[in-house]
Design a protein around this nucleic acid. Sequence first.
DNA 1: CATGAATGAGAGTTCATTCAT
DNA 2: AATGAATGAACTCTCATTCAT
Lengths: 217, 217, 217, 217
Amino acid sequence: MTHLTYFSLLHIFFKYMKKSERTKLHITMKAARLFNKKGYAGTSMDDILKDAGLSKGALYGHFKSKEEVAIASFHYNVNLIIEALRSRTKVIDKSLDKLKAVVYFYKEHLLQEPFEFGCPILNASTEVADQYPAIREHVKYSIDRWRSSVARLVEKGKRRKEIKPKVNADTFAMKFIGMMEGGLLLTQIYKDRKYFDAMASELITLVESLAIAEENL
Amino acid sequence: MTHLTYFSLLHIFFKYMKKSERTKLHITMKAARLFNKKGYAGTSMDDILKDAGLSKGALYGHFKSKEEVAIASFHYNVNLIIEALRSRTKVIDKSLDKLKAVVYFYKEHLLQEPFEFGCPILNASTEVADQYPAIREHVKYSIDRWRSSVARLVEKGKRRKEIKPKVNADTFAMKFIGMMEGGLLLTQIYKDRKYFDAMASELITLVESLAIAEENL
Amino acid sequence: MTHLTYFSLLHIFFKYMKKSERTKLHITMKAARLFNKKGYAGTSMDDILKDAGLSKGALYGHFKSKEEVAIASFHYNVNLIIEALRSRTKVIDKSLDKLKAVVYFYKEHLLQEPFEFGCPILNASTEVADQYPAIREHVKYSIDRWRSSVARLVEKGKRRKEIKPKVNADTFAMKFIGMMEGGLLLTQIYKDRKYFDAMASELITLVESLAIAEENL
Amino acid sequence: MTHLTYFSLLHIFFKYMKKSERTKLHITMKAARLFNKKGYAGTSMDDILKDAGLSKGALYGHFKSKEEVAIASFHYNVNLIIEALRSRTKVIDKSLDKLKAVVYFYKEHLLQEPFEFGCPILNASTEVADQYPAIREHVKYSIDRWRSSVARLVEKGKRRKEIKPKVNADTFAMKFIGMMEGGLLLTQIYKDRKYFDAMASELITLVESLAIAEENL
DNA sequence: CATGAATGAGAGTTCATTCAT
DNA sequence: AATGAATGAACTCTCATTCAT
């Protein structure tokens, strides 16, 4: 996936990183996949260290607890998507097209590596909501980032006269993310794209409804 | 909650049930709450038996495994909502109003007992998706039931000339449920109604868009 | 097996027995099979009561503990063989032929119902030897009975001038039983008759060596 | 027991073993005694770890299940005897004397440490025969080894003109082992040497009957 | 006597974490 | 730092036995 620039850079920088940073990243990447697949409770430190080919001591040398690994993994997973989205949308000019590109990005990667086990935010959310308050804050923070990035995009669109001025950017962002996650949820349980597809068509309609009507131009 | 008729009846019949059925229901109700709050892996048999005020043996006398308790609890949780919705919507005549009533029902009960820990389907979904295939089938079954009940409602609306004939009932049902769950997810993490509210307004718009336009009447 | 007179009689008397005796016998017969197959520790009270089609209360009404059931079962199993042997040997005149008949009886029933799980004495012996002293006494008692019955047979043979006078009846009985059990043990592990067959041929030789030589007659 | 060379060597090497191997051997030795005394079902992992002075985790760090400990223990117990027998018989020249030495070895160690709880093969056999197929295979394997080692000894005796050529080595081995085990069984239940002694005298007779008659020399 | 719900100690096993080397 | 043996609490589940009905 050559467009995942952040992570391409990671790999380029990999050899310049200190050994300990490299090991830490290695652990995080391995753990990220496991946590996304099997959840927090379902993933054991042993699973991680076997997968990473490390000893107990090495793992605990880099992270002081399972929670810390989980948090690093969560952010890794989220950044994986964010960076992929960023590199895809930054070459697009129009705000509405950027938003549509996000929807299409998900359609494209649905049920496929490295997202075959679904959205990390979604996966972390329910297990974490009432159970692990420390991790929950990180989930909230990530959604906040996503939400405000969508909202900024809408505001920019409004300034550029591409989006109706009375559109509430924040409300739109909530709807956008909520519908996305709802669609991902159903697709993940059924392992069937059609659920996300239904939601995607609704999302595209929603995005297009933001546009300043042609006749007004 | 006097409107939860199915469960009101349960309580009325409670004293006529055989002792073992009563205990089993008692365990299920206690477990249902715990599983919804803490997830499958996060809830231990000890948690359940302490909450139910029972001994190990009693618990295993009624259920042969944790999985069996989880499945019974899941269905209990789902039925709790289904019956509440049913008794609310059955006094409503118009199809579109029934659909709206569903949205309003969720708005009303959001973050409150006995739904304070969110939608059981949502909660079970992610933990279960790639981890506990047996339970996953029950989750799928429940969503199927819900989805087809929404779809049937739309078909009926079409027959009754309340809903546009070209509306695809199935696709609508997927969108409806997906948006609902998406909104519930965000509200559950943030413990803030505004996320569901944003989605609710979109849902109401979506429902109203089904209506045969006034001018066509 | 019409020659199992003791047990044929049991069945004839069955209808004249008091209900409680009948139930007790029923339990014993069912348990006897299970204990012989799965051992003392390997057989649960639940196994027994399911097999006998009874309730907890019924079982504990007739036996006050698992140990008591095990002891009754052990004696049932042993009597099953003893009576079968008795009815077979009592029609035989010569002492040596009686002893040979015992060997042939085992050859005939080896690995077959109701002895498919081996000799109850053998099965009980090792599990019980250093672990359940109360049961061990019953095992010893049963071997004593068998041993003295073999010894009596030899003494009788001596009186009837069929067996050499200097043969030590007790020592012979120990050898006879030891070789028998040794052969049964190997056959039971390998599920292969050849191990008992080897021992049987040795046993027949041993028995024949007791005979007063023809030329001395 | 200075003649148990294999195990003497074990103790000499003990300090050069890796820590984990040392602990594993330590557990095995402790468990071996318990399993031989109380059987598989009768010995709990707690019994073992208490006896070994270790924690749960240490035990499961070295063996992944109770079955694995049982198998290691069984082989330890068997090797204990095999090595002792080997070092005793290898200094003996004549085949028949080697066989007799085996009988005398058992007579000597009967009911005494470390064989006070009887023959491991015998002890494992009955519990395992119809209940734990995985362990049963190990028991069969051990008897096979023993049997073929006896048979080889007989064949060698035949080649060296010490044993009658028409003796069937395999059949002899079965008889030899069967009689041995039969004698051990009775002695173990009664805790009385006389049962094995009776069998031992028969065994010695059997062994001597293999010899090429003096007059034929 | 019979029922079967309930008890609770104890089974085998897992796992996050610590710590001597 | 890295190793991996060791810890011990917690987990799911079993079972002989008791006792209210």
